[in-house]
Amino acid sequence: MSSRRWKEKQVREPSWMEQALCARVGDPDDWHPTLETPQAVEQVRQICRTCPARIPCLEDVLTRRTPLTGVWAGTTTRDREHLLALVDAAQNTAA
């Protein structure tokens, strides 16, 4: 496999993104508000609630464990930090 083809393969979006409503609805900036205020987030959360890709989106963003900003699977950056802290605490308790 050529290095160019390998690079292209590495940057492809996950398959769930093809079904994601955020890829087809609204302005992309809506999903990444400068300030994650309740008003800014609530509009896109309503779309996330009906999105067929919500579960794989959440799994993907939590698995990455990178500080992705914006709304992913109806969660804010703060929501995801809280979820990851709960997961870490549960894993430490189980260990």
Rank of each mutant, 00 (worst) to 15 (best):
T50L: 14
D27S: 10
P38T: 04
I55G: 11
E36Y: 08
D29C: 07
K9T: 10
A40S: 06
P67I: 07
P14A: 02
A40D: 04
T50M: 11
W16H: 08
T75K: 11
M17P: 01
K9N: 11
L68S: 13
L58R: 15
S3N: 07
E36H: 09
N92R: 12
R24F: 00
L62N: 01
P52V: 14
R12V: 00
R65W: 06
R65H: 12
K9I: 04
A23E: 07
R24H: 05
D79R: 03
S3V: 01
R65S: 14
R64Q: 13
I55C: 05
R54C: 12
D88E: 01
H32W: 12
V87R: 09
M1I: 09
T37M: 10
R12N: 01
W31R: 01
V44R: 05
Q91V: 05
Q39N: 13
P56L: 02
G26W: 02
Q43S: 14
S2I: 12
D60L: 03
R80D: 13
L62E: 05
C57L: 09
D30C: 03
M1Q: 06
M17G: 03
A95G: 13
E18M: 08
Q43T: 12
V44I: 09
E42H: 09
A73I: 01
T66H: 15
T77Y: 13
H32S: 15
D27T: 02
I47A: 06
T66V: 15
A73H: 04
P56M: 10
E81A: 14
R5I: 01
R64G: 14
P38N: 02
Q19N: 12
C57G: 06
W16G: 09
A53C: 14
R12S: 00
R78H: 11
R5M: 13
V87K: 01
A73M: 01
L35G: 10
C22R: 02
P52N: 09
Q39T: 15
V87H: 04
R24S: 02
A23S: 12
L21N: 11
T76V: 03
A20R: 07
I47C: 08
G74K: 04
D60M: 01
R45I: 04
P56E: 05
A95F: 07
D88L: 00
G70I: 00
W6Q: 14
A89W: 06
W6V: 14
I55V: 15
P67W: 10
L62H: 05
G70L: 09
G74Q: 04
A23H: 03
A94D: 05
V61P: 02
M17I: 00
P14M: 00
R64L: 13
C51K: 04
R54D: 10
A73W: 07
V25E: 07
T63Q: 13
S3L: 12
R64M: 10
G70F: 03
R45M: 07
D29Q: 11
